[in-house]
């Protein structure tokens, strides 16, 4: 939805101020409150839903499938489905790729191993974005975090050693004996290493306006941003992916008029909204995230629980 020049000018000047003045007076590192629900889909191994105050909603379901002779890289499959947007368009593909790489590089795949050489679990993480007004990356990332936190995998009762004699995996009937994906026990069982628990990774999109970095940008803030930064967070520090995106149009909210306008600007050789950014700003974003992300993880951990949730 296009804004009037007056609105854009007001927003930009407010956001570029030092310190920044956001439309809802938030601090640069303050997120908007979200609604969360977990564990409400008994047919999945883990499920979660996040709703944001601007009407965004994402439901994630995690299902585990036993696979044989699969390479380690294929054990995590993330698919993001955005309502109203075709699956093969850039936005869902970008989100799926970013999240898949992030989770795969952060998880110790021994958690998914079943037998020494042949069998393992493959996790299908499907995220359904029912509605969104701003770039949905934050939304999906938070939902996937909560879903993974409550994911449980059945306990293997057949032998894990199948190097000589192949055996189809058999699992315990009792769900009470299932193991939390993020817990320590599953790692100790499968690989004999220490029982360390795993905190799923997160990925954030930050808006850059002038010299200011803003977390959890609203649709308005995104429209006037110079550019957006995608930064991952895992194991207590900033991690890949690290990307620069054009937030104003990446959300898929570009009107046909704006698209044709951009097209003609490109043809004339005019630089689009997206300006380059300085090293200083990237470092600023880095330290902002380093200071803020631990609290986000703490808030999520406090919410996550093993009990069954209800959606409403």
């Amino acid at each position: 939805m296009p804004f009037s020049p007056a609105e854009i000018d007001y927003l930009r000047k407010s956001l570029q101020a030092t310190p920044t003045i956001r439309p809802d007076a938030r601090e640069p590192n303050q997120f908007r409150p979200v609604d969360a629900a977990q564990n409400f889909l008994p047919a999945t191994n883990g499920s979660a839903r996040i709703r944001t105050s601007d009407g965004g909603e994402c439901i994630v379901g995690v299902k585990a499938k036993v696979v044989k002779n699969s390479s380690v890289d294929e054990l995590i499959a993330v698919e993001v489905d955005i309502d109203d947007i075709r699956d093969d368009s850039p936005l869902p593909k970008l989100l799926s790729a970013v999240l898949q790489t992030l989770i795969l590089s952060s998880i110790d795949t021994n958690r998914l191993r079943l037998t020494r050489s042949n069998y393992a679990f493959k996790l299908h993480i499907d995220a359904l974005v029912l509605s969104h007004t701003s770039f949905p990356l934050n939304l999906v990332s938070l939902a996937i975090f909560l879903a993974l936190k409550c994911t449980r995998l059945p306990l293997l009762v057949s032998s894990a050693n199948d190097e000589e004699h192949e055996e189809v995996p058999v699992f315990s009937d009792d769900w009470e004996e299932s193991l939390a994906l993020c817990g320590g026990e599953i790692l100790a069982n499968n690989s004999g290493s220490e029982a360390i628990s795993w905190t799923p990774p997160l990925v954030f999109s930050l808006a850059v306006v002038g010299n200011n970095i803003l977390v959890d940008p609203t649709h308005e803030e995104e429209s006037v941003s110079d550019l957006g930064l995608i930064m991952g967070w895992c194991n207590g520090q900033v991690c890949a992916p690290l990307r620069i995106i054009d937030l104003a149009s990446a959300g898929g909210n570009v009107s046909p008029e704006q698209l044709s306008q951009q097209q003609s600007m490109l043809e004339q050789g005019i630089d689009l909204n997206m300006k380059g950014t300085s090293r200083k700003l990237i470092m600023k974003a880095y330290s902002l995230l380093t200071n803020t992300a631990p609290e986000v993880v703490a808030a999520l951990d406090a919410t996550a629980d093993e009990e069954d949730g209800a959606l409403f």
Binding site: P42, A43, A64, V168, F171, W175
Partner: peptide
């Protein structure tokens, strides 16, 4: 309390699904 079961045990299959449900 949750119970789940193996849904298919044909020897040939190279992948099968684990199902959970509520009892």
């Amino acid at each position: 309390m949750f119970v789940w079961e193996l849904s298919d045990t044909s020897a040939n299959c190279d992948s099968f699904w684990i199902r959970r449900g509520r009892l």
